[in-house]
Design a protein around this nucleic acid. Structure first.
Length: 579
RNA sequence: AACCCCAUGGUGUAAUUGGCAACACAACUGGUUUUGGUCCAGUCAUUCCAGGUUCGAGUCCUGGUGGGGUUACCA
């Protein structure tokens, strides 16, 4: 199970939404014997992203909350687009999220035989016929939203003749495209899906699971409802774009007189600063804008996982955003908030200096090393402490020292006393500079031997507590600081002649070399911790090596000092403008 | 263009089904703090518009406006 305190705050009762309301009403009315059974039905043609996570959470959680079941079913009806590689990746991602489909792993391809038999029944009933028009002719005859469809020459083909042709299609007597099986519904329907939709098409293609057993493959509309029916699904939850397919879903099931689940549609997830569609993510991968499908800047589950997102944070995010039929865009900060909330409670703290500046403690005894205890997690006492070496030469953050500090700057400055976290109070006594550039190369200070651990007997206050790492004990680590992949909230909005790529953020990845406390040098891939005062980092699962760790920044800490700085900068700019 | 769906703070969702618009995030104030983190307190909408029904409308009706989906031998 994922380490998580997910749901710790959304405590105002169980989630409520229109789907849960329908399901509960059905159960109360005794429909389906009062049971609920859902399914998550991906096509194995790509990797899952956080939008899929929303659907996964909805299906698995609605069932679990009501002691029901949720199946995992691969909708592998189109062999030209699918592959086992994706089957394995999808299973892995769902399990990582923490959901268990038990022994209920199904494939549409396992139903090919039953699906075919029912199609013969439909033909015998006179509800389907074999059409021998080619795809252009079919499209032409079907019309469009302004033009009514017209019957083609084969629509009134006798059932016996259609049945014979269907059997020969199945037997492989025809080339791709020679015939199709179509439902006989209504060519004049304003809903195009009802204008004699295709049920089977001929495709002499090897299927990743059934090999060459079949040369006709069922279309989504034919397969999906029946799969739901076979599995005893009670509520078939899908996204809004299938709304217009529901009449067809219902038509097939009622014509066949089989178990009839209820299809309910909900809005897909949109997240600001991200693109969710497979097509666009593919573009990013192919154009080299990202390193692959598991790039930590991508909203793919593999990317988020590598970035340092926890399963619990994704699940609580999905719970928080709710379910509705309105096409909305959730702010990225909402997701980040869930991650911070999870990690704040569960991640251990470590000391790491991202942009090192040397600090010399001039009154520190030569050669002395003091192992000071550092608290692993203030939010979780059971996480205990660890000892960190403190010595006379330290690294501090360059941004934590200013020779001429502005008003609200609390950190180190000449003459000022600050606390080095878990260490000692130190007072800045001077600086050393590069004579040519004027850049500060070292900061000098004196420590108070009575302040070990960060407290003094006289309880005098300091305004800042800073993190540090001992120079002689520090390890070198590569840090990958991620920012939004796109620089605009809606990357799909671009001017004529421009593309998605023009909205990329050129600074979405910054690589830095940091000084880290010794314990971090053998951190295991996937280990996630907070670098105190900077952010949450996770050891990269691809490029990190023992002794040469690589850390990905999952998310930074909230930084109210940055806001103060920004405000000050804005005010200064405005003042300059006035002059 | 036709058909279908949708519309509640800056964002995402609630509202016991016609009865005081709630929660989370964001933003802003202030307090606490050995992380400028966390935590705590406070501020921030009369529900797209116009009519109607009603003692009473976010909720029901009519008409607008705006947004999304569909028009594949993909799912």
């Amino acid at each position: 199970m994922p380490a998580s305190n997910s749901g710790s705050k959304a405590q105002s009762g169980a989630p409520r939404d229109f789907i849960r309301t329908i399901v509960d009403a059905d159960m109360k009315a005794g429909k389906n014997n009062g049971a609920v059974h859902t399914r998550f039905p991906p096509e194995p043609n790509g990797y899952l992203h956080i939008g899929h996570a929303k659907a996964i959470c909805i299906n698995f959680e609605i069932a679990a909350e009501r002691s029901g079941l949720c199946n995992l079913r691969f909708d592998d009806t189109n062999p030209v687009k699918e592959d086992v590689e994706y089957v394995d990746a999808i299973k892995d991602d769902i399990a990582w999220l923490g959901f268990d489909w038990g022994d209920r792993l199904y494939f549409a391809s396992d139903y090919f035989g039953r699906l075919y038999e029912l199609s013969e029944q439909l033909v015998e009933q006179g509800d389907a016929y074999v059409d021998s028009c080619n795809s252009d002719e079919i499209r032409e005859l079907r019309g469009d939203t302004t033009v009514e469809g017209k019957a083609g020459p084969y629509r009134d083909r006798a059932p016996a003749e259609s049945l014979d042709l269907l059997r020969r299609m199945r037997a492989g007597e025809f080339e791709d495209g020679a015939h199709v099986l179509r439902a006989k519904i209504d060519l004049t329907s304003p809903n195009i899906n009802l204008r004699d939709p295709i049920i089977y098409r001929i495709r002499h293609v090897e299927h990743h699971r059934t090999g060459n057993d079949w040369c006709i493959y069922p279309m989504y509309d034919w397969a999906h409802g029946l799969e739901d029916s076979f599995e005893g699904i009670t509520h078939s939850l899908c996204s809004l774009e299938f709304e217009n397919h529901r009449p067809l879903y219902d038509w097939f099931l009622s014509k066949l007189g089989v178990h009839h689940p209820q299809q309910i549609e909900f809005a897909r997830l949109n997240l600001s600063f991200f693109v969710m569609s497979k097509r666009h993510i593919t573009t990013l991968v192919e154009k080299g804008a990202v390193s692959g499908w598991d790039d930590p800047r991508l909203p793919t589950l593999r990317g988020l996982r590598r970035r340092g997102y926890t399963p619990g944070s994704i699940r609580s995010f999905c719970r928080e955003i709710g379910v509705a039929k309105f096409n909305s865009t959730v702010e990225l900060v909402k997701l980040e908030n869930e991650l911070r909330s999870d990690l704040n409670a569960n991640a251990q703290r470590r000391l790491a200096v991202l942009d090192p500046l040397e600090l010399v403690v001039t009154n520190w005894p030569e050669g002395k090393v003091d192992m000071v205890p550092a608290i692993n997690n203030h939010e979780d006492e059971s996480a205990g402490t660890r000892d960190v070496p403190f010595s006379g030469r330290l690294y501090i953050e360059r941004a934590d020292f200013m020779e001429e500090p502005p008003k609200k700057f609390f950190r180190m400055a000449p003459g000022r006393e600050v606390r080095l976290r878990y260490g000692y109070y130190v007072t800045c006594t001077g600086v050393e500079k590069d004579e040519a550039t004027g850049e500060v190369t070292r900061v000098l200070c004196e420590y108070d031997p009575e302040s070990r651990g960060g407290n003094t007997a006289d309880e005098r206050k300091v305004k800042a507590t800073m993190h540090w790492v001992s120079v002689d004990h520090a390890g070198d680590a590569e840090l990958r600081l991620y920012d939004n992949l796109f620089q605009v909230p809606n990357p799909m909005k671009f001017k004529k002649g421009k593309t998605l790529l023009d909205n990329l953020n050129p600074n979405s990845l910054t690589v830095q070399h940091a000084k880290v406390e010794p314990s971090l040098m053998d951190a295991q891939p996937g280990f996630t911790c907070q670098f105190e005062r900077t952010g949450y980092f996770t050891v990269d699962t691809v490029d990190s090596k023992s002794g040469a760790p690589v850390f990905n920044r999952a998310v930074s800490l909230r930084d109210s000092w940055a806001k103060v700085e920004k405000q000050a900068a804005n005010q200064a700019a405005q003042r300059a403008k006035k002059k």
